[in-house]
Design a protein around this nucleic acid. Structure first.
Lengths: 207, 207, 207, 207
DNA sequence: CATGAATGAGCGTTCATTCAT
DNA sequence: CATGAATGAACGCTCATTCAT
């Protein structure tokens, strides 16, 4: 891992914990064990650091859906299931970053990041639109589902699953339970997501 | 409308646009056409202003679900449909505030607000849990759906519908279309939500 | 007691506790149970309030020394002893105010108060100068003591006795002792002052 | 002199002139010719700046009395005279700081400073107590003088000599006199102090 | 007389960024 | 590459005072 990546990871943690505005470059510098001036040196500005963080993390997701699109051996449903499963896996291993994404969208401040995010969203929208059209034409999934809204439900569920993690554990009294951790939680989220996807799109799982 | 409410509305707009941290009390004072000192005078502090905003807006939603719970003339499905419909209506007429809620959860900073929000969430969780159990026992809805995850999907869909409003219009080329506005959009969101709810819970609508 | 005097007393307490600058007119208004605007109404300004407080309290001391000067039945030493005894008694019953005097001299801010204080000091200086000259000429007290420095020692001792009250109790372990209070302390201060006065001026007490 | 010391000296002057509260960090920054942010940079806060000023100046005095205590070649009276002479010399060359000390005690606000001051006072109290006991046992000084009150008189005289400097010059018409300055004044204060000490403690000077 | 609302200036502090070394 | 010093702007907040009622 390069020094830049190391700084980005430390910044990511702080952004997830306290939000972008509430995280000072001093905080980041201290967390990364470097001098404040180096942030400007490496990234130019705090905003640009955020942009680099986004580009680093989001490209993984974009590459993932491209792989699925290019994979001709999968059925439509197989593609959908793989996309969702991969999405959750990325959220599970990068929860902090997805927290930051959510905050960035909600606070709507760094224009460059917002632009990048919207472009990514459009890629996902096109991806889901193609898949749903494909499935609906072949009759493997139910008609009448808007792909953008479908995506909204999927993304919204996953993002809010991050926000409701504490609520879930609290409500079911799992906090002190042995073996309870984020991985277990996100496995449950994945099951829920697969269940509602089947119900919404009206198919039976292949796996 | 009292002056306090007026200030709260102006603050709400700014929080929705730029986020809490990025909105200065000077911004709020300027937007409301008052002296900065009046913010402290009326609310005590910027944080307390946010708390008042939350209490003002959220109590409406909490009262709404209480009314549904107390209404014995409704079936389980009727209750669920009314809850969702009311939820969307509130989001439609207070989009800015729900934007702020999302940002607050994501940035996780004002502890008093977070505490209030968690308490509200728990109320909603209990509400949905009771409804789903009732429906599952009477056989009117499908078994196997976790109430918290169901709520997560509903809330996540609505919240992300706010974030994806531009994407939707952009993707379908509706931005310049005559008659396209937020009300139309949220009507479509409502339809989507009713559709997926039926599919997820496995019932046919009564209406 | 008039309302103005009541306000002055409350202000005096606060000034003694926290200092003039650190006491806000809001504090004073709250302590006196009146509206903030009334401070301006009654006194014109915070500074003028302070001036009125000074005039009210200091005139008592100035009248006291005038009485002594005018009293032809007292010997020089009798006059000195009466002046010191009266001084301590006033400090004992108005400790808070003398604390304020000290702070005002030390911080040196309110020019009007400083001017008034200097005028008062000059009165005391003239008083002591006359007494010492009288005593030195009649041979009842030792020569070679500068009256201003004598006054400095007397005033300095009393003022610092206020500041060292806690130290005294702490050092001798009197804090928890039953019967220990400010009156007892100032009686001891008075004894000390009478003792050093005799030693400094070289006379034997008449009483 | 380091930059920190330079800032401390400028701050000291302002504190002496106007008091701590009435001196803004902007005042200090302007006086020292630096940006206001540098105050926080160097000291952390305005309060901490004051604490550093106290530690810098007071340690000199504490070291001085320790030297005297450790010096076995001096008689009791020699120690007392040296202590007083050193005290005045320090006040003479650091009048501003002693002005600040007085104001701090009188306004009683910066708790950290007050704590430090009380600790110092206790050290001086113990020092004088030991000296007086030593002298009273050997018979070189008169019995019946309370060490804390003795210290109160010494300190009070010196401190009030600072406050009465103008009065003295004014009263004796020395202001315009050639050769009149603070050094001359404090020499007179020293003589007065030596005189009253001899009278109070009942000894004849050795020098 | 008395109130609550309002004002404008100033407070101590922290920010992202830049400069000189 | 890296540092610590420095900058100017902005932050949330509180101040003494005044105004309209």
């Amino acid at each position: 891992m390069t020094k830049k990546e190391y700084i980005l990871e430390k910044a990511e943690s702080l952004f997830a914990e306290k939000g972008f505005d509430a995280t000072s470059v001093r905080d980041i510098a201290k967390a990364a064990g470097i001098n404040i001036a180096m942030i400007s040196y490496y990234f130019g500005s705090k905003d640009k650091l955020m942009e680099e963080l986004f580009k680093m993390r989001m490209n993984i997701g974009l590459a993932y859906v491209k792989d699925i699109t290019d994979n001709s051996s999968l059925t439509t449903i197989g593609k959908i299931e793989r996309a969702l499963s991969g999405y959750i896996d990325r959220v599970k291993s990068n929860t902090k970053f997805y927290h930051v994404i959510l905050a960035e969208q909600a606070t709507n401040k760094n224009k460059s990041v917002i632009r990048f995010l919207n472009k990514s969203k459009e890629t996902y929208a096109t991806f889901f639109e193609a898949l749903l059209k494909e499935g609906q034409q072949s009759g493997s999934i139910r008609a009448g589902i808007d792909p953008i809204f479908f995506m909204t439900t999927i993304t919204g569920t996953i993002m809010h699953a991050i926000l409701n993690k504490e609520l879930y554990a609290q409500h079911y009294g799992l906090k002190a339970t042995k073996g309870w951790n984020d991985d277990v939680y996100f496995e449950k989220v994945k099951e829920h997501l697969q269940l509602i996807t089947k119900n919404i799109l009206g198919y039976e799982s292949e796996s």
